[in-house]
Design a protein around this nucleic acid. Structure first.
Length: 266
DNA sequence: CGCAGCGCCTGAAGGC
DNA sequence: TGCCTTCAGGCGCTGC
């Protein structure tokens, strides 16, 4: 599941391949989630930005091509010849005869061409601060979680407290901070631990090119390396790296959740 | 307005 | 071996 570190890795790979390229042809799967791809025909891509898990490709006409990878999305840039692939949901032929292709087996991804109106993308419109923005600090984290009584992990996954955290890095950050994922309140002390844990977990994953569990791939088809450095996610039944207690699996907000019952007490 | 619940989607994995 | 069931989960939408 591509989260911020995976999307950032894809972004960095895309920059030299699509910046300055004009889109000469494009098309998308008929589903409303992909059919907007063709709306970018004729525009030139002027860069590759990212907000949370959303790739934002500014176009020279003032609009932006928004791409979300969902669960299984992969972006590749092919040469003039590329294999027929039934899972390509959207593609953009560039003026250098290469093609940017979004492959997404489960169609949880999303393509949109937007101007200033983000009403069709409510999560993006209400997206919280980037985790590396100085405005996102322990006090801001505490204040934004203070008004909600949802579980701490649910709030992290909601994209409003901070942008870009998904299931893997939520589990990792909460484990590192020693906070139970099912807590409904976050103390100031807890926020002072959770904030640096979120930032560090994401930065470390970016430095390793993201976490490849199954579908995530870099633009050149490679895998990330962070899956070899996970302390918590997916390790239920194995000993906690900090205290040796067997990690437990529970369900929080309908998502598989791993935590240490000793390090992360309610 | 916040939030819980549901649906989307299909390959992989497990059970028998 | 092969069929069937269950599971994975980010986000948009609906309704309370």
């Amino acid at each position: 599941m591509p989260e911020l570190p995976e999307v950032e890795t894809v972004r960095r790979g895309l920059v030299p391949l699509v910046s300055g390229r004009r889109i000469v042809e494009a098309d998308g799967h008929p589903s409303p989630k992909f059919r907007d791809a063709g709306a970018a025909i004729g525009a030139t891509i002027t860069g590759v930005d990212r907000r949370g898990k959303y790739l934002m490709l500014p176009l020279d006409d003032g609009r932006r091509l928004v791409i979300h990878l969902g669960m299984t999305g992969q972006l590749r840039v092919h040469g003039a010849e590329h294999p027929v692939d039934p899972y390509v949901r959207a593609w953009w032929q560039l003026d250098d005869d290469r093609t940017l292709a979004l492959r997404d087996v489960r169609r949880f991804g999303r393509v949109a061409v937007v101007d200033d109106d983000l009403s069709g993308l409510p999560t993006l419109a209400a997206l919280g601060p980037e985790p590396f923005d100085p405005a996102f600090d322990p006090d801001a984290l505490w204040r934004s979680m203070r008004s909600s009584r949802s579980r701490v992990k649910t709030q992290l996954l909601g994209q409003r407290v901070v942008a870009g955290v998904g299931n893997i890095y939520a589990d990792e950050a909460l484990w590192r901070a020693g906070i139970h994922p099912g807590n409904r309140t976050l103390s100031r002390v807890g926020a002072a631990r959770l904030h640096p844990a979120i930032v560090a977990v994401l930065l470390e994953a970016i430095s390793r090119g993201g976490t490849t569990l199954r579908d995530y791939r870099t633009v050149d088809g490679g895998s990330g390396e962070n899956q070899h450095h996970l302390d918590c996610y997916g390790r239920a039944g194995q000993p906690c790296a900090r205290c040796g207690t067997v990690l437990r699996r529970i369900v929080v907000d309908a998502r598989g959740t791993t935590f240490c019952p000793v390090c992360q007490r309610r």
